[in-house]
């Protein structure tokens, strides 16, 4: 049993943060890794990236958007309530290297995944520019935390309600035009990662994305999370979740993410 010791609501209650007691995972986890959670006996296994960890306190932090039955139940959990199972850390940790100038692009709850990576990239000496994007002002999360780990910081909203009016790719294009960027890290909705990758490919800038396919076990034993990278099938849970953004078959990933749309409605 894993106890929730802190809970915050963001983006008008559509995004929830839980800080959870999980001392063994807190000690082991590295940026880019994830856990699988199950809340109750009849529950499903839900993969979520570790947004933060505190080894001294023995806690990990997850941030999730409420999209269906399981996450809606997670939202109902109060401080002091518990998750039945948490398995992790899973997946490969991000390869953090001092490459020079890095642009980190985040969208939606992908920002939570991006935060520990951005922090690590900055700590190792990169010049970090962060671009956060959202449909509208209320959906932006972790602005202060991201600002604190970035050298330059840009916010974009689709409707212009905050920051720069437009998409993250508009802001990114301006940067790529203006200077030599050594690496881009993009984490967010699949279409966002797809269009960032298409753009950076034009400029030949290496791009890392973090994929979020459907998972069951998260340990490489089922292949539910398989994705096509170049000509190869890879399992995101053990080979990823990060991949070379220029090699991902995003259209296949988007279709596979829709595998259980009907069932998800029935369950909810």
């Amino acid at each position: 049993m894993f106890k929730i010791i802190r809970r915050e609501e963001m983006a008008g209650g559509t995004v929830i943060l839980n800080e959870i007691e999980a001392p063994d995972i807190a000690v082991k986890t590295r940026p880019g890794q994830f856990v699988i959670l199950r809340a109750y006996e009849e529950g499903e296994r839900v993969p979520l990236t570790i947004a933060d960890s505190n080894p001294d306190k023995g806690t990990i932090t997850i941030i999730y958007m409420v999209v269906g039955k399981s996450t809606a139940f997670f939202r109902s959990l109060k401080v002091g309530d518990t998750f039945l199972d948490i398995i992790g850390p899973l997946g490969k940790a991000t390869h953090i290297e001092n490459v020079g100038k890095v642009v980190c692009v985040g969208g939606g709850t992908g920002t939570a995944v991006l935060h520990p990576i951005t922090r690590a990239l900055k700590q190792i000496g990169n010049h970090v520019t962060t671009i956060l994007g959202a449909r509208t002002k209320d959906l932006i999360i972790l602005e202060d935390m991201m600002r604190a780990v970035s050298d330059d910081f840009i916010i974009t909203t689709d409707d212009g309600s905050y920051g720069r009016h437009g998409l993250v790719t508009d802001a990114l294009k301006d940067i790529l035009e203006a200077e030599k960027i050594n690496q881009v890290v993009a984490i967010g909705p699949v279409p966002m990662m797809k269009f960032v990758s298409l753009l950076t490919k034009e400029y030949n800038v290496p791009t890392i994305v973090s994929l979020n396919p459907i998972m069951v076990d998260g340990t490489g034993m089922c292949g539910c999370c398989r994705v096509t990278i170049g000509d190869e099938t890879k399992f995101a849970c053990v080979d990823g979740p990060e991949f070379d953004g220029h090699k991902v078959d995003y259209d296949e990933l988007m279709k596979r993410l829709a595998s259980y749309l009907e069932e998800e409605k029935i369950a909810y």
Partner: peptide
């Protein structure tokens, strides 16, 4: 298209054969 491991894990371990009483589809 499933691997047998995924199909059987969903059904046996996660009791997807009892969906929606159990959450795994």
């Amino acid at each position: 298209i499933y691997s047998a491991n995924e199909y059987l894990t969903r059904s046996n371990l996660m009791k997807a054969y009892l969906f929606p009483e159990y959450d795994t589809p």
